[in-house]
Amino acid sequence: MPAGTLYRGREGMWSWVAHRVTGVLIFFFLFVHVLDTALVRVSPEAYDDVVATYKTPLVALLEYGLVAAILFHALNGLRVIAVDFWSKGTRYQKQMLWTVMGIWIVLMAGALYPVLGHAVREVFGS
């Protein structure tokens, strides 16, 4: 068997894969989210009960993951639009991906305390 024939992909392929995966995950969450919000038409108690699960430390971690997925999908989506409509988009697609990742890391760091702070306080006490 010849060595090194596996295509490992580059920035373009992996950002495409990540865009798909995050898109599907966000869409599945959206179904659940519309359903849980619909409970405001049942009773305030039913809604507050389900929102209480959103405030638990484990689900807070999932929320941080959701924020990660949405931020990547949003920023990379803007990059895809730039690749499609900007005449130099294809030439700078790699640089734009690293820009996306840079902004993503900054925003994720900024979201760390607001999204996970209460969970950390609950688990470790304060």
Binding site: Y47, D48, E63, I70
Partner: peptide, 29 residues
């Protein structure tokens, strides 16, 4: 729709999960 959603969803996340106590303040009221 993607361009519009970037604005709509990111502000939604900011209001619901970041500002004013994050997820803790969400409830029927």
């Amino acid at each position: 729709s993607g361009i519009v959603l970037v604005v709509l969803v990111l502000f939604h996340l900011l209001i619901q999960l970041v500002l004013d106590g994050g997820v803790s303040k969400i409830g029927f009221a």
